[in-house]
């Protein structure tokens, strides 16, 4: 777990500022003990991060160069996961595909999630006209199913990683805002928010200190789900031929064409990229769940 070591300053501050708290390392360790599934998730996510960031060193072959002497070869010592229809090494493409997945997954989730969080909490907190206006705008955006909005965006701007990110991020915003709002709505009525308001605390302070932490649990579930959803949405777009394009190595793209054409005759082409997607999203979700349990303010240090 050495890779999960926090940096020094963070350790210092938590040790100095909050002497009664355990150190982050201890907390990470206790997290691993308490949350074996979360740890498994963390391992999967870390594996993906390492693969993505270190692809240049890990991948045995160039992921984009064709080798017509080795087309659709089954897994072997030379090609541990086999080769695809262009003779490209599948392991190398999956390793480099992790990088694309990181870029697409995290960018979409973070941008979409944060914008959604702000809109959702603000909408619930201010209520009245603001809430009404936000809700109408969000309703309109929500009315476009993710994949339909994405189809239109890609048709307008064309394919490519940036456009795929735009296409996936836009529809995530209202989904986040709505769920956050519904959580925040129940909290708004809780006495301590009223109390905070009567104490004359500012909007920003109430929102940030009281409401945001209270919607953090559903938000984090969503955020982790979003990373997964973005990766899955990219796969769906690719399946429709409108995602990331050849020869960029991307998991969803690798399932397009290959998965269907060779599912029976060269199943490794269909199976391994699918597994890469499934395991990564699986890991992210496990980790997200565990993180939620660990971070839930009502649960912490109890």
């Amino acid at each position: 777990m050495s890779l999960a070591l926090p940096n020094e300053t963070l350790l210092d501050r938590s040790a100095a500022g909050r002497p009664f708290r355990r150190s982050l390392l201890q907390r990470v360790l206790s997290f691993c003990v308490r949350e074996p599934m979360g740890t498994l998730g963390l391992v999967l996510v870390l594996a993906m991060l390492i693969a993505g960031l270190g692809a240049d060193w890990i991948a045995p072959y160039n992921p984009t160069s064709n080798d017509f002497t080795a087309m659709t070869e089954p897994p072997s010592w030379a090609h541990p996961l086999g080769t695809d229809q262009f003779g490209r090494d599948l392991l190398s493409r999956i390793v480099f595909g992790a990088r694309t997945a990181i870029i697409v997954g995290f960018t979409c989730a973070i941008v979409g999630g944060v914008v959604g969080l702000v809109l959702g909490v603000a909408s619930a907190y201010f209520g009245g006209g603001v809430d009404m206006l936000f809700q109408r705008v969000l309703d309109v955006m929500m009315a476009f199913p993710l994949i339909i909005m994405a189809l239109a965006v890609v048709a307008i701007f064309g394919t490519g990683v940036q456009n795929v990110i735009i296409a996936i991020t836009i529809p995530l915003i209202p989904r986040c805002a709505r769920v956050v709002r519904s959580s925040a709505l129940s909290i708004r009525e809780v006495p301590y928010i009223d109390a905070a308001r009567t104490c004359g605390l500012g909007h920003a302070r109430i929102i940030l200190r009281h409401m945001v932490p209270n919607v953090m649990a559903p938000f984090l579930i969503l955020l982790t789900a979003f990373v997964g959803q973005a990766i899955l949405a990219e796969a769906s777009l690719s399946y429709l031929g409108l995602g990331v394009q050849e020869p960029v190595p991307a998991w969803g793209l690798m399932l397009q064409g290959g998965a269907e054409e060779y599912a029976s005759t060269a199943p490794w082409i269909a199976i391994f990229p699918g597994l890469a997607i499934a395991l990564t999203v699986f890991g992210i979700s496990l980790f997200g769940d565990a993180l939620r349990d660990a971070l839930d303010p009502k649960l912490r240090d109890r």
Binding site: T64, S65, N66, F86, A155, G158, T159, G160, G241, L242, Q245, E246, P247, V248
Partner: peptide, 20 residues
Amino acid sequence: TWLIDEWSKIGLKATQRVLP
């Protein structure tokens, strides 16, 4: 996909834009 790889062999970097 084939063309892009062929062109890469003389140092050209082509990316593919696919449209309906």
